[in-house]
């Protein structure tokens, strides 16, 4: 026992002194926010680069939130673009029609939040069929939901129907995107490593067994879907106010496919993987832009090759140490040590 606690303190020391991780997050957050504010206030990053960074942020939010359902919970949801559409439309309607034009700037976070809440309500509805259906059938439910959202939006003339919605001001700035991205990553990372997160993981490994071990699977599924769709809605709102124009066709199955590709490129059940996947995919698409249409030929080809040689994606089922709580690192370390001392006991 003394050996174990010695290892604990050794690790603690190691953690704080050698890596300096204790200061990593505060430094990163302050520096990031300062960089974003400076970039949007002055012109040292041109607008094109800023837009790319905004897309990177939005894609990180989408990818991390979808990873909660597809990676950590092990379901196969293909309707993420539908939630995004709900968020985009709710937020845009608020800023264009409801809020007084003078105060739009101040009320913008409220609009984004409302978009997230709207998407979360729909996510709650989608969670209900997931009690009974799993796997491919749940994939169909989410797909059908995505198509229904698109079809409904196309049929409501008040939101522009198939023509789409115009008139948003360019309210999505780099600092806001940074704020929402950090918030979504923080919330989902904390959820995943909480007691609730263990429930999510146990549903992926074996739903019936986790039910028998007194995990409230219905509650866990509802919360996971609600949180995931909330952040998809947030991303939708940001997207609408970055592009200043939305129409229902932007949120069809191809958009969902994009998000899926980012999730599986980065790797399932990994926050750092999602971030890497979203960054690589978004930036690579921009770098390859001179190739014209051929970049859209090249990208899927690279994806297929990646899947063949690395079927789990870049970070599949692994996590960068930055995102793992100290508690879990210590537990893992102790477990490894125990295994070294008595290899048969844990096998």
């Amino acid at each position: 026992m003394t050996k174990l606690s010695a290892a604990y303190f050794a690790l603690l020391k190691h953690w704080q002194t050698l890596t300096g991780y204790k200061y990593f997050w505060p430094v990163f957050l302050i520096a990031g926010l300062a960089f974003c504010a400076a970039a949007s206030a002055s012109e040292f990053l041109d607008l094109y680069l800023q837009l790319i960074l905004i897309y990177v942020g939005i894609n990180i939010i989408l990818t991390v939130s979808l990873n909660l359902i597809n990676g950590y919970m092990g379901e196969f949801s293909v309707g993420h673009a539908g939630f995004m559409a709900v968020g985009a439309y709710v937020a845009s309607l608020l800023t264009v029609h409801v809020f007084p034009p003078g105060a739009v700037n101040i009320l913008f976070p409220l609009a984004i939040l409302a978009g997230g809440v709207g998407a979360a309500l729909i996510g709650f509805l989608v969670a209900i069929p997931s009690f009974k259906t799993r796997g491919d059938y749940l994939a169909i439910v989410t797909l059908a939901f995505c198509m229904i959202v698109k079809s409904v939006l196309e049929n409501i003339d008040a939101v522009g129907g198939p023509r789409g919605l115009l008139g948003m001001e360019k309210l999505t700035t780099l600092p806001w995107v940074f704020f929402w991205t950090v918030l979504s990553v923080w919330v989902i990372r904390n959820l995943v490593y909480s007691n609730f997160g263990r429930g999510v993981l146990s549903i992926r490994e074996d739903e019936i067994a986790s039910d028998l071990m007194s995990v409230n699977t219905r509650q866990v599924k509802i919360i996971a879907f609600v949180v995931s769709s909330f952040f998809a809605g947030i991303a939708g709102g940001l997207f609408a106010h970055a592009l200043q124009f939305i129409n229902p066709r932007m949120f069809d199955i191809l958009k969902s496919t994009d998000i899926l590709i980012m999730v599986y490129l980065g790797g399932i059940a990994s926050i750092s993987g999602s971030i890497i996947g979203a960054v690589i995919y978004t930036i690579l698409l921009e770098i390859l832009r001179p190739l014209g249409i051929w970049r859209m030929v090249l990208m899927p080809l690279m994806l297929v090759l990646l899947m063949i040689y690395r079927p789990r994606g870049i970070m599949g089922l692994r996590e960068a140490r930055l995102f793992i709580p100290l508690r879990d690192l210590v537990t893992e370390k102790l477990w490894r040590q125990k295994k070294k001392e008595a290899p048969d006991a844990s096998a």
């Binding site: 597809n70 899926l260 859209m296 990208m299 899927p300 297929v304």
Partner: peptide, 20 residues
Amino acid sequence: VSAIITALGVGLFLENFTLA
């Protein structure tokens, strides 16, 4: 899932190749 994603990738490839 990696097989499914590969299939999605192949589908995108076929679409965009034909489009190109």
